[in-house]
Amino acid sequence: MTENATPEPSYRQISGIAESNAAIEQVIGSAKRTLRIFDFTLSNRGFNSPARADQLRAFFVSGRVHRLHIALHEPEHLVRECPRLLTLLRQFPMSIEIHRTLAQARNAADPFVIADDHSVWHQMHHLQPRAIVALHSPADTLPILQRFEEIWELTEPAVSATTLGL
């Protein structure tokens, strides 16, 4: 395969946390510009692991226009339990946005991670371990990307790189 060749699309079902974390790592690794994440709290997703922090740091360092948008129902968990992600937020404040869901967006119950417009990890319901991962598959990613945009419209900034007011 040449450097500019498009990777073959792949799609598979996942049934556990370890498989999901490996799939999330693959989705993040496939990103070229933008990562979008929707979750309740980010717990059990590996976002405080040293390897995930290194992977995200490499993503930000490789391009000044790289962005990470996170929409959470409960961002307090991230503040308490994900110091590595908060360190990245302080190091790359113009690249990371962390928002809290509002209104109807609070009804969303299917966490996902999207890379650009081509790869997605999608858990069918936050209480069930079943998920899918579609890599280099815009057709599978587009509906979830549209869903993220709908959720993002109903969010407000929740976690910033500064501690103003303390």
Rank of each mutant, 00 (worst) to 15 (best):
H66S: 10
I14V: 09
P157Q: 06
L154R: 12
A5M: 11
A115L: 07
T41F: 08
I144A: 04
N107K: 09
Q91V: 04
V133P: 00
E3M: 12
F148Q: 05
R147N: 06
M124Y: 14
A108M: 08
W121F: 14
G29N: 04
A18T: 14
Q55H: 02
N48E: 07
T162N: 12
H136S: 10
I37D: 07
F40G: 07
R45Y: 12
D110I: 11
I28S: 08
G16S: 15
P111R: 11
D39W: 01
A109K: 12
F47P: 07
S160R: 14
A51E: 14
N21A: 05
T162R: 06
V133L: 09
I14T: 11
A71N: 06
G46D: 00
N21Y: 05
R36D: 00
E153F: 04
I24W: 01
N4S: 15
Q104R: 13
S10E: 07
L85M: 07
V27D: 05
S119H: 10
I114T: 15
L102W: 00
I132S: 11
M124D: 15
P50R: 13
D39I: 01
E153C: 07
R130D: 14
E149A: 15
E156K: 08
H73T: 08
I151Y: 03
A134D: 02
Q128L: 13
L78K: 04
L135V: 02
F112P: 03
H122C: 06
F92N: 01
L72D: 06
S119Y: 12
T141S: 06
H99D: 14
P157M: 00
Q13M: 05
A18Y: 06
L154W: 03
P83W: 01
Q55E: 10
A103I: 10
P7T: 05
A105F: 06
E3W: 15
A139R: 05
D110T: 15
R57W: 01
L78V: 15
R67Y: 05
L88Y: 02
Q26M: 06
V79K: 09
S20A: 15
A31Y: 03
P143M: 04
P75E: 05
E3G: 13
P157S: 01
L166Q: 14
G165S: 12
Q13T: 13
I151Q: 06
T2D: 14
C82G: 03
V113R: 09
L86Q: 07
M1Y: 09
G63L: 10
A161Q: 13
L35G: 01
H77C: 03
L68K: 06
I96V: 08
E156P: 10
A109R: 12
G16N: 15
H126D: 12
F148G: 06
S10R: 03
T6A: 14
I14D: 07
A108N: 12
R64K: 07
D117N: 08
T34F: 03
E76G: 12
E8D: 10
R100M: 08
N21M: 15
D117E: 13
L42A: 01
K32R: 10
Q91E: 15
I98W: 03
L102E: 14
S49Q: 02
S95D: 10
H73F: 03
T101I: 03
E74W: 05
H122I: 02
L127T: 12
A134Q: 01
A108R: 13
T41E: 05
A134Y: 00
M94D: 13
E74H: 09
P129C: 10
A71H: 04
Q104W: 12
L145K: 02
T155F: 02
R106I: 10
